[in-house]
Design a protein around this nucleic acid. Structure first.
Lengths: 348, 348
DNA sequence: TTGTATGCGTTATCAG
DNA sequence: CTGATAACGCATACAA
């Protein structure tokens, strides 16, 4: 490992000059010296020591990505198709901007705070963070932070969130179902906080705008981690007879349920229609292909990095609540009950 | 941010003593001082500066994870279900051992080398690395390195690889197909290097051991990135009439093809049987559920980290070529042609 | 048992 | 245009 000092000694010059050449401050160095230094830098393939840089500059070129893991759906949260696509796009963007990414997946906020501080991370992207944790983090870490898919009460402190038109997504989907004649629609969610809650609001609003009203008992909340358990599935199976459509808060739930149901002889969409949310790979792979709400996960990750870098570089902007657009994707998992549509077309 | 010096000044003692307390060298410090220091450390929530530590200790507590991305199947390699599960398990293991993980996904080996050197990474896990790149890396970076799923010629230099019983996997699968009466089996691969090649060898061996011979024209190589293109799929579709089974080198290919075929009216497994490899989530979700070769991806990641840490800590071990076991998973995508099996049982 | 001094590699200040 | 020197936070050899 060649250091600046090595190079300086070889040429009999000072480290300052070498450093200046490295940083392109060539206005302060004679052309001849520049060339001599650059030649050696190339010859020995000089690579700066980032620890030393961090120490003097009080910045690290590291961007932290913190995932608050809920170990329910998958063994590890990174394996969740939604998160892995998000992480992938964030990583690519971070790297393309000359920064490094350090991932922390932990549900221990204290550990997260320590990790962030110990590396003097330049900025932080938080996914799935609870509001209390965010407050606690901010009391110790005051560098730029961007949230993804957070619905923290926005009056508490100024923050940047990259989210989604969640409400519009379910609104459009519910309108779609209503238009096709569905009235007995169950809404399946993880919980009634954050994203799921807002999606439920969109669902409600669509009913209201169509002169209908959502019945409270049609909201089916599935405890995280319970979905795969037979008891929970079994219960849903029994209740399904009351409905013509299951509207799921995520593709993952939709797909899991569709398989469970069709394995038990339920014909989809003839007997029961399904809709999802997210448009992950699974939605395209399953048969019948899932009617769902598309969101550009990659874009979400890129935007989060872009805004974070703006903050790091001190570039002003006014948006605090960025919402990535959604789009309805009509596939084959919803049956038309109106009989007005052409019955022959299976793949619109 | 409280530093050791701050603490020392507050107590009117030296940084050495504080440092000793932090590192538990309490044998050299009076009990009273230990308590006074610890109290302050807790009060101000002292967090060490890792850059400073790296500088003095010439190690970083960072483990690098390098993915050589082939941007064919997915937009970003981290989103590949196989890799995301692997990354997730590696991250969890690294964290549980008190290390930090830095991910690099790049197909530019030069960039990778610079990143690794600039952070003075303590150890490196390489996924999908080409042999030449490995050589080049090792010429500049001589700290512990563990490969995952690499089939580099092992005589070149000593290395540790965490791989899979790839050959056994396809051997068992082919035997299974032969036993069910299949003879016209196409073998679908990405390429004829590394993992895919070894899997092909297992396939061949199974034929030989059963007194049969693989026909060269039954090896169908799909160029990466070409799979989704209609032309390639179309060609496979035409050729499928010559076969009773498609044996795929990965679940992803199998699933993609199954959908293409069944969307065109091919009944699976009645008209054509399919098998995969890996047993990713998709294999369980698709219908008919995919008969495939299970591998414990999480275990693979954990083993890679374990061996890397052994090397980092100077613990001797003799294994250089670790092979995680595989297991046949019989699901519903293969038809029995022997008629000896009970025809009623659809889910064995 | 505690303190002093030095160095890790880099950048920044300031003087020549 | 160039260089000497200090500083970042920490660990450690050596002194006291």
């Amino acid at each position: 490992m060649v250091t600046i000092k090595n190079i300086a000694d070889m040429l009999g010059i000072s480290t300052t000059t070498v450093s200046n050449v490295i940083h392109g401050k060539t206005g302060e160095v004679s052309q001849q010296t520049v060339e001599r230094v650059e030649k050696l830098l190339a010859k020995y393939d000089y690579v700066p020591n980032n620890s030393a840089r961090s120490l003097t500059q009080n910045r690290s070129n590291i961007i932290g990505l913190a995932l608050r893991g809920r170990k329910d759906k998958y063994e590890n949260i990174i394996a969740d198709p939604f998160f892995s696509e998000l992480i992938g796009s964030i990583e690519a963007k971070i790297r393309s901007q000359g920064y490094f990414m350090m991932i922390y997946s932990s549900d221990d906020i204290g550990e997260l705070i320590r990790n962030v501080l110990t590396w003097n991370v330049d900025g932080l992207i938080l996914i799935g963070m609870l509001h209390d944790d965010f407050i606690r983090l901010k009391s110790r870490y005051n560098k730029p932070t961007v949230l993804i898919d957070s619905y923290a009460p926005r009056d508490i402190m100024n923050y940047v969130n990259v989210g989604l038109e969640d409400e519009k997504g379910t609104y459009d989907m519910t309108c779609h179902l209503l238009k096709l004649g569905h009235r007995r629609i169950a809404f399946l969610a993880d919980n009634m906080e954050g994203v799921d809650y807002v999606r439920y609001l969109g669902h409600q609003k669509a009913f209201l705008d169509n002169g209908l009203k959502v019945r409270e008992e049609d909201l089916l909340i599935i405890r995280p981690g319970m979905l795969e358990r037979e008891s929970s599935m079994e219960e849903l199976y029994h209740r399904s007879k009351d409905y013509t459509a299951f509207m799921c808060c995520s593709d993952y739930y939709a797909v899991t349920l569709m398989n469970y149901f069709s394995d038990r002889g339920v014909k989809i969409p003839q007997d029961l229609s399904f809709t999802g949310f997210d448009d992950i790979l699974l939605a395209r792979v399953i048969r019948p292909a899932l009617t769902t709400v598309y969101q550009d996960i990659t874009k979400k990750g890129q935007l989060a990095v872009e805004y974070l870098l703006k903050m790091i570089h001190g570039i002003e902007f006014t948006e605090r609540d960025i919402k990535v657009p959604v789009e309805l994707v009509i596939r084959d998992s919803v049956k038309s009950l109106t009989k007005i549509e052409e019955p022959g077309l299976k793949n619109p």
